[in-house]
């Protein structure tokens, strides 16, 4: 398990990185936290011609809470930094709820949130969070204005994003929560810190009298890309404390098409979608009440 020889570039600015990436085209591969790339290299499952190490580029390690409440995470922000970021948590609690489930501390200390999104693994927590928050990825390329690509367009399939040769994801933006909304995140892995057999990020929006107006959910490990499902119908207009969350969970189970693997059959995954949704929704509704001025 030793990688074959590869080239290495360590640009000092985004412009330089984009120039190097443009030169390399298909031969270049961006290295940030390396938590997925390095094992793939060592197992010779990928053999890029040149690694473009962006770790020395200043200005990519910032977490910014925008005025509209969205959270912008630079390409070099480690999961652990996002996890510990108080303003980001306040603006978007779902970020911390999900990030704390990303692997283990050692991986979170090196792995980047942006890289996790760019890796487009449907088992990744951050892909689901990007999707459910209506977030986007900021993609730069030499000689072009940075483009902003929404989650739905960004994720094309398992481990496949719309990032093309010469492009660099400079940041990801997680969308601000809707007014009177709350969120929850639950996942079940075989072992704590493993890729989830199933995970769910949910948001519940209530009206002023604490009745449900919108329910949305995005899942981990149940489809090729993190789709966002609308689960409002079975609970629309119901009081948050007595809503039929089980029906919403069952609806979710009917919408997903999970596949089985060594650790969880497709049927079992569908069951987890139902159960985890049913358990997450009341937590999200309670969160909405707690965070906003909704009359409980």
């Amino acid at each position: 398990m030793k990688p074959p020889a590869f080239g290495y570039a360590a640009p000092r600015s985004v412009e330089e990185a984009l120039a190097v990436l443009a030169d390399l085209g298909h031969d270049g591969k961006v290295l940030a936290g390396g938590q997925s790339l390095i094992p793939l290299l060592s197992m010779r499952l990928t053999a890029p011609h040149t690694l473009v190490d962006i770790n020395r580029i200043p200005g990519l390690a910032d977490v910014t809470v925008a005025e509209d409440g969205s959270v912008i995470v630079g390409a070099l922000v480690r999961h652990a930094e996002l996890l510990a970021h108080a303003q980001a948590f306040e603006a978007l609690p779902l970020l911390r709820r999900a990030t704390s489930n990303v692997a283990h501390a050692t991986v979170r200390n090196r792995g980047t949130t942006c890289g996790s999104v760019a890796h487009a693994d449907p088992s990744g927590e951050m892909t689901a969070i990007l999707a459910i928050t209506g977030g986007s990825v900021q993609i730069a390329a030499a000689g072009r204005r940075t483009r902003d690509v929404g989650a739905r367009e960004f994720f094309l399939g398992p481990l496949e994003s719309c990032l093309g040769p010469g492009e660099l994801a400079v940041s990801v933006r997680f969308g601000a929560p809707a007014p009177r909304s709350g969120s929850a995140f639950l996942e079940l892995a075989r072992r704590q810190g493993d890729y989830a057999m199933c995970g769910v990020a949910v948001t519940v929006t209530l009206d002023d009298s604490a009745e449900v107006t919108t329910v949305r959910a995005a899942y981990l490990s149940v489809g090729p890309v993190p789709d966002v499902h609308d689960l409002t119908a079975p609970v629309a207009g119901q009081r948050y404390s007595t809503a039929d969350w089980r029906a919403a969970g069952e609806l979710a189970a009917s919408l997903v098409e999970p596949e089985g693997d060594l650790h969880a059959s497709a049927d079992y995954r569908r069951r987890l979608v139902s159960v985890l949704t049913e358990r997450a929704l009341p937590l999200a509704a309670a969160d909405a009440v707690a965070r906003t001025q909704v009359a409980a």
Binding site: L188, R190, M197, H263, A264, S265, D267, Y268, R271
Partner: peptide, 11 residues
């Protein structure tokens, strides 16, 4: 037995 197998047993 993992949870997926236990689910199969319960069903």
């Amino acid at each position: 037995l993992g949870p997926s197998q236990i689910y199969d047993l319960i069903r």
